[in-house]
Design a protein around this nucleic acid. Structure first.
Ligand SMILES: [Mg+2]
Length: 408
DNA sequence: TCTGGGGTCCTAGGACCC
DNA sequence: TCTGGGGTCCTAGGACCC
């Protein structure tokens, strides 16, 4: 593959910084952005709050204990998604090859942009400047010969970072780098590698392929490549990306329950969320997966194929009920969720796609109203019985396409 | 007073088939 | 008396990312 130049842009404490822009009184204080309800978690901590140990995923009581003066701010998801779109629009000015990686991160391939916009470092500085001018927010940028190295580079200096890893520097950068610093090596993999005496990427790169293959299978081969800084995956724009494979929603209940009537009301609500999103994006479900988390956090799934591809709320809801009825609950339920494996609607055999003209029209009409006036403006009776969500934004949100969060 | 929600990909065991 | 070996599909679980 010809030499490439990839940038990874990572916004600094994205949600928290946005809130501090909106409300100057927050700028001098440790801020943690949270969802709704008492069971929510920290989605982003400002750098000030991080100094006290406040971290993403931490519950609010723990955060308060570590940093009593922390200011909790409820997430304003619509503002975050709007800001994300504005940042992507800025990036589009520098190259068409942009891959949104999450709500606050993106890769951009600037290999063909240097004659127009200058050196990679100049481009990175221009991007950081434009983002700050237009949104008031800080970002960190990593530059590398591939996505893996660009992402590593952006993590090496933040906030307001700019790190360039040249092709010729890859080896020396990785030599003493702990394996878990690479995107794709998490806690478990790192633990297993460490147990084998492998702590750094240099050691991992030197480990015989056979040993990695026998311990990790296919993953082992990839690990060895990663440790050498090799990553051939292209920067894939939203249009180029693989089709959406699944659509799902889940909810941690305001309080644990064993009451199946309550759980079924939530299932209808979740079915409607999943199906309205599938309809909006022309997707049809082929399989439904029900997830249950007990009070003790034990989590399991049960799934069943849908008899024919569908995105009809009623069909999916009834299917969810059948799965639910096959489960004998052993403990009080903390979380319930459904996910659908999906296909593009036009890929479904017409004869197999369950469609009733009048029903399709009804669903379309309801979707239109709900788009304009808000989710669940029009809904089915039993949904009204279920209330209360944690309302945490998903970082897997994408500016376009089926990936989604609650923007309300 | 603990511990969100949205995804993708890989593995492994049993069923089933040739 | 000894007892195939693949391959694929289905399902559940788990690792990883933000
Ligand atoms: Mg960030």
């Amino acid at each position: 593959m010809a030499a490439r130049t990839i940038l990874h842009i990572d916004m600094d404490a994205f949600f928290a910084s946005i809130e501090q822009r909106r409300n100057p009184a927050l700028r001098s204080r440790p801020v943690a952005v949270i969802g709704r309800g008492h069971r929510t978690v920290i989605t982003t901590a400002s750098y000030h709050a991080r100094r006290y140990g406040v971290r993403t995923g931490m519950n609010i009581y723990e955060a308060r204990r570590l940093c009593p003066q922390v200011v909790f701010v409820k997430a304003n998801n619509r503002i975050y998604t709007d800001t994300s779109r504005r940042i992507l629009a800025i990036l589009e000015g520098f190259s068409p090859k942009i891959e949104p990686f999450s709500i606050d991160e993106a890769f951009i391939d600037v290999t063909g942009s240097t004659s127009l916009f200058g050196t990679p470092r100049t481009i990175a500085l221009s991007i950081k400047k434009r983002i700050r001018e237009e949104t008031g927010l800080g970002s960190s940028v990593g530059i590398g010969p591939n996505k893996l190295m660009a992402k590593l580079a952006s993590s090496m200096q933040k906030p307001d970072g700019l790190v360039l890893i040249e092709e010729g520097e890859v080896r020396s950068v990785l030599e003493r780098l702990p394996v878990e610093r690479l995107c794709g090596i998490g806690r478990k993999l790192a633990g297993r590698l460490n147990a084998m005496g492998i702590r750094t990427c240099g050691q991992l790169a030197d480990c015989p392929a056979g040993i990695l293959k026998s311990s990790f299978g296919m993953t082992g081969e990839r690990l060895k490549l990663m440790a050498q800084g090799i990553d051939t995956s292209p920067v894939a724009s939203v249009e180029e990306q693989e089709r959406t494979r699944s659509v799902g929603h889940s909810i941690t209940l305001p309080r644990n329950t064993s009451d199946t009537k309550t759980l079924k009301a939530y299932l209808l609500r979740l079915s409607e969320k999943v199906c309205s999103r599938a309809r909006k994006h022309g997707l049809a479900g082929t399989r439904l997966i029900l997830t249950v988390r007990y009070s003790d956090f034990h989590t399991f799934t049960r799934s069943r194929p849908l008899p024919c591809p569908t995105n009809d709320t009623r069909a999916v809801y009834l299917h969810a009920l059948r799965i639910m009825d096959s489960i004998e609950l052993k403990k009080a339920v903390r979380l319930i969720g459904i996910a659908m494996d999906v296909l593009a609607r036009h890929l479904c055999q017409e004869s197999l796609f369950e469609e009733d003209r009048r029903r399709t029209d009804l669903l379309r009409a309801m979707d239109t109203v709900n788009e304009s006036f808000g989710e669940f403006t029009l809904t089915w009776g039993t949904i009204l019985e279920s209330r209360g969500e944690t309302g945490v934004i998903s970082p897997s949100w994408r500016p376009t396409g089926a990936r989604n969060i609650d923007e309300t």
